[in-house]
């Protein structure tokens, strides 16, 4: 076992042990806090696929996070008001079932990522950063002016959506669902990263010309990675909206894009489990520093600055050593 996989096991174990201990001690707040970290971790794992493996610095992932949130918000809103989503050409009813909401969130944000990616990938470097940021803002302003679904005020859902056999309003059961999904996503991304697709994607990041010379099309690889990345972040958005039973345009704000990026960087770019460590550390900082001072973002900024300037590679870089170039 390498140090990195040791770290992975310890990390996932801690993430499971903390809420279980909180459950035994009857501390639902800690469980909810950990659930937040798990959901952010899923969003970060999604972004990491594009950013870490593909080298695509997307500053617009809040759009996919928010789209997932609105997919859940809109479906549940129609279900709780007993109004159909649309009645022409055929009737579509709202739903409170997570098993329907998740695929809708994944498909909607995946398709949006496909469209945004197809346009944005015509550019590269700084242009790519800025154009993804601008597309994110476009969705943000759209949701603000979308008065049918609450506009600036957002949408509230009275009861958390349902999952067969579980009581989702119980914090530990909802945590179990999120943790299960995180494991599933991590397994999928791990498989993808080591399959020929992932290897080709990493090769594209390192040297596009060489990859082209062996007959691969970088654009297609990037676009696939970007769409899958958006879809995973969309799933996290649906869970996040369910956790809060509330969705609003702030989920799509550019600060959210920045925060998702911070999870990836704090943890370690290009490590499958990196964003999990990053999201957990972020929540820990938010909780401890936020208790110290209402201006805790100053400290967060200082820590982030320190990581970027002096500790490249994030937590995984510090604890597991430099990334191994040849497996």
């Amino acid at each position: 076992m390498t140090r990195e996989s040791c770290l992975n096991v310890v990390l996932m174990g801690l993430l499971l042990a903390v809420p279980l201990a909180a459950w035994a001690l009857d501390e639902p707040f800690i469980i909810t806090l950990t659930t937040r970290a798990v959901i952010f971790a899923i969003a970060g794992v999604g972004l990491n696929l594009a950013l870490g493996f593909g080298g695509l610095v997307s500053f617009g992932h809040a759009a996919f996070f928010g789209l997932g949130g609105y997919a859940m918000g809109i479906l549940a809103y129609h279900a709780q008001t007993y109004t159909p989503l649309m009645d022409w050409p055929f009737v579509i009813e709202g739903t409170k079932s997570m098993l329907v909401i998740w695929p809708v969130a994944i498909v909607a944000s995946g398709l949006a990522a496909l469209a945004i990616g197809a346009l944005s990938l015509r550019t590269s470097g700084v242009y790519f950063i800025m154009i993804t940021l601008a597309f994110g803002q476009m969705f943000f302003y759209f949701t603000i002016s979308w008065s049918a679904y609450g506009g600036e005020d957002g949408l509230s859902i009275y009861v958390r959506n349902s999952f067969p056999g579980l009581n989702t309003m119980d914090p530990i059961q909802f945590f179990a669902i999120c943790y299960g999904l995180l494991l599933l996503v991590l397994w999928g991304v791990h498989r993808m990263a080591n399959a020929s697709f992932g290897l080709a994607l990493r090769a594209a990041r390192q040297n596009e010309e060489r990859l082209q010379a062996v007959g691969q099309v970088p654009y297609r690889l990037y676009l696939t990675a970007f769409a899958i990345s958006g879809a995973i972040t969309g799933l996290a958005g649906a869970l996040f909206a369910d956790l809060n039973r509330f969705v609003s345009p702030s989920m799509l704000s550019w600060q959210t894009s920045g925060e998702i990026m911070v999870f990836v960087i704090l943890g370690g770019v290009g490590r499958v489990y990196g964003p999990v460590a990053g999201a957990a550390l972020f929540i820990l900082l938010e909780h401890t520093l936020g208790g110290l001072s209402p201006y805790w973002h100053v400290y967060l900024g200082a820590i982030l600055l320190g990581v970027v300037l002096f500790a490249r590679g994030g937590i995984f870089g510090l604890l597991a050593g430099r990334e191994v170039a040849h497996d």
């Binding site: 950013l51 610095v57 500053f59 470097g125 700084v126 950063i129 920045g258 990026m261 911070v262 960087i265 770019v269 201006y295 805790w296 973002h297 100053v298 967060l300 900024g301 200082a302 982030l304 600055l305 970027v308 300037l309 490249r312």
Partner: peptide
């Protein structure tokens, strides 16, 4: 550019809260 984006994002946090 990724490092630049993050470091200047951190600067925004510091400036705004300051």
């Amino acid at each position: 550019h990724l490092d630049q984006v993050l470091a200047t994002f951190a600067l925004i946090l510091i400036f705004s809260e300051g």
